[in-house]
Structure formats: structure tokens, C-alpha cells
Design a protein around this nucleic acid. Structure first.
Lengths: 323, 323
DNA sequence: GTGAAAGCGCTAACAC
DNA sequence: GTGTTAGCGCTTTCAC
């Protein structure tokens, strides 16, 4: 009995006699044999790992996503290695560039923040890659995300449909790396246009990130205006929660005085006071699709075409924008 | 020039001539040489990875912790592999038992939920291990966590000090795997004793997990009592948030009608309405210490003694239990 | 300080 | 179907 046969048995190749298989298995049991993953990795030139690289792991959206990715990867026998970039372009680049860690993972699911399209293109072409969020594919990787413009248009239209006439937007990022934010702003504008209403430019506020504090500060600025808004479209649920915090602490009511809608559909928004309306992307779909495409890319002998995958989304109306 | 010399240079061993080092480095540049991590791993018998295994990754407490662990590990040149067990005993056991994945990580930081002390003892003794949460060390691993009894006593005492006389506790788990919960219940009782007050046994409510829905349901039960509580000690901030959600939706006020205090100090509690008082464990300390001890355990030739490490904690009083 | 050569433990051609 | 053997690309003991 040789190592070849053992390898066959351990890896479950069909071509083994039942008797041999049994003999091997008993020996494995008795000797307490454990295959050495490290050796296998080297021999195969694969690590059996995929990396999930996101800007922030304590953002509920990403931790909920991480969970789904983990589940999908596990089902396929892969382990998940993670890293947080804090949106640092250098850190982000290091992950997709040629580097010594290249072999540590067979592929990457990557949610870039500080990297513009150009930097994305300049990467290790042999690294299977799936991009999350808002970056259009250049054909060498897959991209999965929801239709931000349409979703934002719907959210804004919902607010306008409530009869609100001074609708604010919190989260714009008018610079190269703010593509996702800009798409939402575009949707915000389109909704106004469709109803023949003008956008109040002073009500479009930028934020460096999409956090609670960002939302809280931005809302404070809006309330300090001579004519504050009567509704707010926030580019994340955290921003919405922060904004609501400010509104309430100033003695105003949500939604009576100011209606609020967020983005991401994190669980927190379903239990907050008030509960917050939101754009709900299908995270399970996003995670499952991202993993599926990545594994295909990893195992396929010839690189599959880079796809634009549109995840489903829907509007969830809760107390913060109830009639 | 041999591979030996190159290895020396790449790994930064001191014993190389400046001239040789330069020659090697230029060659490395020109050839675009990248060391193969997989081969190195095999040769060294190490993966340069540590695993973080927690019950739930979408729990803010764990995602905040994960973030700190990541930072500490990265500083030491380690990558972090993660897994979520959902508290499933079988899944948890698989991670610390002898197994083929053993070599995939050099050590594990583990927050068990479904595993009792006995099951913990029966593990791969060669696996460096640091336990988080409430499990006392048997001397073969380190344990880091806050003093749950003391912290719970302080939280409860704070509520009693407010003059509340019917203080409830949400989160008890009176079974083998509920050690952490039981310690909190003990602190809850001790606080009453210290003030010579009786615990209202009907106000001590169990929950399967420490989630928002758990808190919401438990609170509903408490409010259905003939004599509802006038204060609640919740075993997690999520439970507190869920409880507050229920209280508010019944038209009662926090803290006027019912004061609430939580546990974990997640960011969400600082922005919710009302903001929630909480027991704040020093997560940064916990993560840094856990990683430090784990790496020591990994690199030390002789196994270090298993330590009980007590992380600092403090009470943060916010609106939910303001006077 | 540098070179040669022997593993690390597995997988996968290649023969039988 | 089973055995033999040559790598995978490093690290490291051992001479020089």
C-alpha cells in the first residue's frame, strides 16, 4: 500500500477497492493520521482560502455580509480570511497587487473604498477577484451590487410622495473615490426631476464616511439652516440613525416634523425608536453570488468573462417615514 | 549565491555582507521574485495565521472585538482567519479538536457558547488557545474576560441606587452552557443582598440568546405581569435595545417609568433613543491581551502557564438610567 | 559569510 | 486498481 493509494482514499477518489479503502481507513484510525494541510496546499498550489476585504468590519452592513459569505464559503469547503482596510488606498492596493501573500488565498471578495477605477485595473491579473459595491467591471473581474441609482430614486420618490417638499440628502461624496455616493445623489436628483421639482442644493450634504456620527453632525448642520428640511434621504442606515438621534435630541419628531429613510437594511433599524425605513439590498443574494462567481473563477481553467451582477433590492417603509 | 543566502536576505537575518545583500535584492527586483508563502509554511510547519472563532459575527460586540483582534494580529505579522459557530457544540468542538485543519492556524482565540467545561478540556493539547468570555482556565490555556459578577453587581446597584424597587434581570441561562449568564445573575443577586433587599424572582427572565428580539420578547412578558418592573438589568446591550423597543411601543417612558441598563458598550447604545447605560468592558485591552498571550503561546518553546486575565470594565450611565 | 543538499508531507505523472 | 517517484519552493543542518 503506497502513499498514492492513501491519497486516493483520503481525497475520496472513486478508483479504490472497497477492501483497500477499508484497510486504509482502519490504519488511518489506528495511527490517528491527519493529513497535513500545509503540504497539500504547497503540492496543489492552492490554499483553500478566500479573502474578504472590506473597509470596516464593525459596520453592521459588512458584518451581516461577512456572515453570509462565511456560510457560502464553508459550504464549498473554503475557509475565509478577512482584513479591514479602513479605506486606506495603500492597504487596499496591497491586497490585490502582486505580493508575497498572493498564495495565501485563492481569490478575493473585495469592497474597495479608497481605490479609484484606475488603481483597480493595475493589479495581479492572476488573482481571481469579485468586487462588491459600486465599481463597474472592466471585464477582468465580476462586480455585484444593487442598482444604486434606481434604489435611491425610489427612496427619494417615496419621501416626495409623502408630500414633503424640502427633501435633504446626507452622504454625498463628490470626489473620485465616492462613486457609490454619487450614484445615490444621481438617483436623488432623478426623483426630483421626474416629479418636476427642483433639488434644494443647500440640502445636499456630504459626509466623509457613512457612520452614526457623520449622520448626527450633518443633521445638525441641516437643522441650523433657516429653512430646515422636512425629510431626509440618508446614504446608510447608520447615517439615518445618527440623524434621527440629532433630530430627537433637538425636540423634533420623526416622522411628523422630519421623515427619514436610510440604506442597507441593518437589523438595528428594525428595533430603533423610531424604526427606520430603508433600502434593503438582498445581502444573502450578494454574498452567495459573490462566492459562487469567485469559486468559478478560481476553478475555471480559462478566466470567465467579468460580469455585472445586479442584486435585488426593495424599499422597506417603517415608522421613520410613515404617513 | 545559493538559496540559503537568498533565504537569509529575504528573512532579514543579520549575517549577510552588505554587498551580497544588495546583489540579492537587485536580483529579486529584476526577476520580480515573490517568496511562496505555501512553501514557507510547509517548511516551517506554521501558517502564520490565527483563528478567531466566535458564536455570532453580526453581534456588534464581536465585530468590534474582531476589529481590535485584527489590528493586533496584523501588527505582529499574522493574518486572521475567522469562523462563526452559531453556538453549535459540534462545530465548536471541531475547531479545537485534533483535525486536519489543525495546521491551518497556529493558534485560536475562541469564544465558546455551546461547549461546557468538560468538552473544552478534551481538545488537541498542542493547539495554542486563548478563551474569551466566561470559562475558567484549567491551566492549559489562557482566559481573558471581565469580572462578570462584580460588573453585574455594580450595574444592579446603580439601578437600586436610583430608588427603584422592582428591578428585573433579562438574560439568565440556568443550564450548563450558560456560565456567563449565571455569573451576571449572581452579581444581580449580590447587589440586592448588599442592600438588604429581596430579589423579585418573577422578574428574573431567561433568554436563549442575547439579541434584540430576545430582549423585546422578554420585556413583553415582564410588562404583562401584574406588577411590572421599574428597572431592568439586561445581559447585553442588544437585549436592552430590544427591551426599550418594547417599552416605548407600549407607550411607557425610559427611564421615567422603567430604567434600563445593558452590557457590552456597543456604539449603537450611544446613539439610540434613548441612549443606553451600560457595562463597558475594555475591548481593546481584551483583544490586545488575547493576541499577545496567544502569540506567546505559539512561539514559546515550553507552554506558558494558563492565566486568568481580568480586563478592566466601567459603568457608563446614559439616558436610559438617568435620574 | 556562503554553498550544497536534505527534508517538510503531500499530489500527480507515470508505469505496471 | 496500485505502486514508484519526481516535484511543489521553501528552510535549515552541515561543511567549507
Amino acid at each position: 500500500m503506497s502513499s498514492r493509494t492513501v491519497s486516493n482514499v483520503v481525497n475520496g477518489y472513486a478508483k479504490v477497492t472497497d477492501r483497500t479503502r477499508e484497510r486504509v481507513q482502519r490504519a488511518v484510525e489506528e495511527l490517528g493520521y491527519r493529513p497535513n494541510v500545509l503540504a497539500r496546499n504547497l503540492a496543489q498550489g492552492k490554499s483553500g482560502q478566500i479573502a474578504l476585504v472590506v473597509p470596516y468590519l464593525d459596520t453592521p452592513y459588512f458584518s451581516e455580509l461577512l456572515q453570509s459569505v462565511l456560510r457560502a464559503a464553508r459550504a464549498a469547503g473554503y475557509t475565509v480570511l478577512i482584513d479591514q482596510t479602513d479605506g486606506d488606498p495603500e492597504h487596499e492596493r496591497a491586497f490585490i497587487a502582486h505580493g508575497s501573500r498572493r498564495l495565501l488565498f485563492d481569490g478575493v471578495i473585495f469592497s474597495p473604498l479608497g481605490l479609484d477605477q484606475m488603481a483597480l485595473a493595475d493589479r495581479d491579473p492572476s488573482l481571481p477577484l469579485v468586487i462588491l459595491g459600486e465599481r463597474s467591471s472592466d471585464g477582468t473581474f465580476d462586480h455585484v451590487g444593487i442598482d444604486d441609482v434606481a434604489a435611491s430614486r425610489q427612496a427619494t420618490d417615496h419621501l416626495l410622495g409623502l408630500g414633503r417638499r424640502r427633501v435633504a440628502a446626507i452622504g454625498d461624496q463628490p470626489y473620485a473615490t465616492g462613486e457609490a455616493a454619487q450614484l445615490r445623489t444621481r438617483g436623488f436628483r432623478e426623483a426630483h426631476e421626474a416629479r418636476g421639482q427642483a433639488v434644494h442644493e443647500d440640502l445636499v450634504i456630504g459626509t466623509p464616511r457613512f457612520n452614526r456620527p457623520d449622520g448626527a453632525h450633518a443633521m445638525a448642520r441641516l437643522l441650523d439652516l433657516e429653512e430646515p428640511p422636512d425629510a431626509v434621504f440618508c446614504y446608510s442606515d447608520l447615517v439615518a440613525l445618527g440623524a434621527i438621534h440629532t433630530i430627537v435630541s433637538r425636540g423634533l419628531r420623526v416622522p411628523e416634523d422630519i421623515a427619514v429613510i436610510g440604506y442597507d437594511d441593518i437589523e438595528e433599524g428594525a428595533f430603533s425608536n423610531p424604526t427606520v425605513s430603508t433600502v434593503s439590498p438582498d445581502k444573502e443574494w450578494i454574498a452567495a453570488t459573490a462566492v459562487e462567481r469567485l469559486l468559478l473563477r478560481i476553478t475555471s481553467p480559462t478566466p470567465p468573462p467579468g460580469l455585472e451582477l445586479r442584486a435585488p433590492h426593495r424599499l422597506i417603509i417603517r415608522e421613520s417615514s410613515a404617513r
